[in-house]
Amino acid sequence: MLLGVSLSFIDEEIAHDFRSHMANDLEIQDDLPFQHRHWRLQRVGWWVIACILAAGLLGLFGHHPLSRTTAQTQDGTLLVTYDRFGRATSDAEVILTVTPTEQEEGTFRVWFDSDYLEPCG
């Protein structure tokens, strides 16, 4: 019986298994080295998934208490609470806290820069 020897991997799990095919009299298109490479790639993929989920849980994708941050004007009359990271085609919550300097009744106006509003649509 002729066994194919593959030297393209160093994985200790298959150190004892250098065959490139399993059953020799079976009409089947198997390829063990390819399968082992694929399994290695799969495990890399699993770590990528774990990293993405960890990043999401730590706030890198927004909608997270840790990704909220604030900006305040010099005199403290306007406090803006916003999300550091946004998502396209999704809502972004911006909280404006206005502390007027005079305790009078009336209306206050907030001005938005058109550069800020334009990309938001």
Partner: peptide
């Protein structure tokens, strides 16, 4: 929910598949 972004979709699916794995 009402978040129809691709980011949200991908995160939800990854969390399900990730937990399954």
């Amino acid at each position: 929910g009402n978040d129809f972004s691709v980011t949200n979709g991908i995160l939800v699916i990854l969390s399900l598949v990730g937990l399954d794995i």
